[in-house]
Amino acid sequence: MSEIVDILISASFWAAVIRIASPLILATMGELICERAGVLNLGIEGIMVIGAFTGWMAVYQGMPLWGGVAVAMAAGMLFGLLHSVLTVPFGLSQHVVGLGVTLLATASASFAYRLMLPQVTSPPKITPFQPLYIPGLSDLPWLGAALSQTALTWAAFAVAGLVAFTLYRTPLGLALRAVGENPAAVEAQGLSVTGLRMGAVIVGSGLMAVGGAFLTLSAFSSFFFEMVNGRGWICIALVVFGAWKPGKAVLGAILFAAFDALQIRLQQTALGAVLPYQLFLALPFLLSILALILMSRRAEVPAALMVPYNKGER
């Protein structure tokens, strides 16, 4: 038991929590924007893969790290465009299109990887984002170590703040929330439901891809085929857990990351010697299911989520 307490009070544990939470926050914000506008985006898993791949490949080809982030975002927005064209004006099944986009994006990353690096057995490394030194803050005894994070992590939290501000404090945010609740009323205001929804899916997909790029550009320094490993699906659960609210979703991501960081450390303890390591690895997925069950009764689902809108139909 004292082992767990030692872990929980160490600065390195909390540094890991914030690091693990960062890609989840970015992708969860992306999914949250889509869903608040009424579109479930199951392309998230594949869009994270394409973001991880394109961001890494751009940097490997000589672009600066922020250039890699921009390339990843653009690639994500491209797949977001594909998703939104099919689901918004054409109103196709968001389940089927989302899974199709995930399959297409994942396959595209694998295809491009093999094409560009045909002979490579272990993927080449890039120099990832380094922890930022913040004068004053970084010198503090415990906090300095816990907040020793890369610029992309700080950006993730800034994005979450920006999403919350936009959704609740701007006319655009009001329109986006309304389009996920009552699209006909938005149309009656003279706004374009199609435009708002497509925009939300495209921007949201861009954020998902940046979340994927975090893995290759900040967390690790290479691209592996299985590296996203269900994080996209976990983010969908986090949106539900956060009751479609940015602040709660960020808290959910941090809570979730804390469990993830804890399970990695518990594997090194006496507990890890007794229990199979697969049980620890399954913990994030089990927790996600548990979160969905706990929130099922309380969540306020956007009323028009997964309901396509066709002008002239009532």
């Binding site: 594909l82 099919l86 054409f90 196709l92 099944s93 089927v96 299109v97 199709g100 986009v101 399959l103 297409l104 994942t106 396959a107 595209s108 694998s110 295809f111 093999r114």
Partner: peptide, 16 residues
Amino acid sequence: YIADMLLATALLFMVL
């Protein structure tokens, strides 16, 4: 992986 790309493409084209 061309196979996976083609099948995902076929799926999206077909539902449309």
